[in-house]
């Protein structure tokens, strides 16, 4: 997300003495990365609604709330650790930490408290398998992706993408108490969707990442290699998206949506592959693929739910 949308009149916010906070409540909301949270909540809710069996509606809502808070905690811990590089990028420079509105120790305490609280409530109210996966996803995003991978390897978002792929497992486990083939396929879809999604963004935001020293693929390997990787991942993603239908785990509603949206995804990825632009202003296909990838994931997961309720 683009940082806190808190209007700050010039010269009004000054450095507060230690122990005095100048933060607005919206700064704490911004620490949770609400836009990322919405995608996480959506994918977990889709799994929860697709899973066989019954979950008490209030407990189902508690499970989704815990997933949302857990994702928010990951976002806060991520922003705490990355405040130095956020300050260097135009897109993130106005976030609460680099802008100086929230102190680092406040953000750390906020993130840890939310992480522990969301896992504890998930375990006590829903079940401990869902709580365990939630804890794993928070640790994976905060430690494996943020601390270990992001600044070290251009493959950062490939492996880090797994962190964003956990929510369907959590949603499913909340209902059934186990994890079967379909939630693992939902995991695989998000895992394979992440590289084309983020690399298309990285292509037209390359200058920002280069300035911050983040080794995103376009910065390290160049635009041509990134465009080839986007196409290759797309060619793996689309068949995996169709797999739930091919294996008989879903019906025709999901199958037709997966095939149609997958074909458009491939067409957009081919357009990116053919583009030779090196400046952001000429990267129309990359911007279109980035936007479409969001719609694609939304449609595929919504189709899973629709299929479950229409066909079943």
């Amino acid at each position: 997300m683009s940082g806190a949308a808190v209007p700050v009149p010039e010269g009004l916010i000054v450095a507060a003495p230690e122990g005095v906070s100048f933060a607005d409540w919206r700064d704490y909301l911004a620490l949770l990365k609400p836009r990322v949270m919405s995608l996480v909540v959506f994918s977990a809710a889709c799994a929860l609604l697709t899973a066989p069996g019954h979950v008490q509606p209030f407990i189902g809502c508690v499970a989704i709330l815990c997933v949302a808070i857990g994702a928010g905690a990951s976002g806060a811990l991520n922003q705490w650790y990355e405040a130095d590089i956020d300050a260097l990028m135009k897109r993130t420079a106005n976030r609460p930490l680099p802008a100086g509105r929230v102190a680092p120790e406040e953000a750390l305490a906020f993130g840890v408290a939310l992480a522990v609280g969301s896992v504890a409530v998930m375990g006590l109210a829903v079940n401990w398998l869902a709580a365990g996966i939630l804890a794993g996803s928070i640790l994976f995003y905060s430690v494996v992706y943020t601390v270990w991978l992001k600044r070290r390897t251009p493959q950062n978002i490939v492996i880090g993408g797994a962190a964003g792929a956990f929510p369907p497992l959590i949603g499913w486990a909340a209902v059934t108490g186990d994890v079967t083939a379909l939630p693992w396929l939902m995991f695989a879809i998000i895992f394979l969707w992440t590289p084309p999604h983020f690399w298309s963004l990285a292509l037209f935001m390359e200058a920002d990442y280069a300035k911050a020293g983040v080794p995103m693929l376009p910065v390290v390997a160049g635009e041509t290699a990134t465009r080839r990787q986007i196409l290759l991942y797309t060619l793996v993603l689309v068949p995996v998206t169709i797999l739930p239908w091919a294996l008989g785990l879903t019906g025709w509603v999901y199958g037709s949506v997966a095939v149609a949206t997958g074909a458009i995804f491939i067409a957009r990825a081919v357009a990116v592959y053919r583009n030779t632009a090196t400046v952001a202003a000429e990267m129309g296909p990359e911007k279109r693929l980035f936007k479409y990838s969001l719609l694609h994931l939304f449609l595929v997961f919504a189709a899973l739910v629709a299929d479950h309720w229409i066909v079943a």
Binding site: V14, V20, A23, D24
Partner: peptide, 23 residues
Amino acid sequence: MNVDWTPEQTAEFYRRRRARNLA
């Protein structure tokens, strides 16, 4: 509070603290 703020900054500080407490 012993800080060197203008009246506008002090008012903004109290407004933000009130909003945080309400939240």
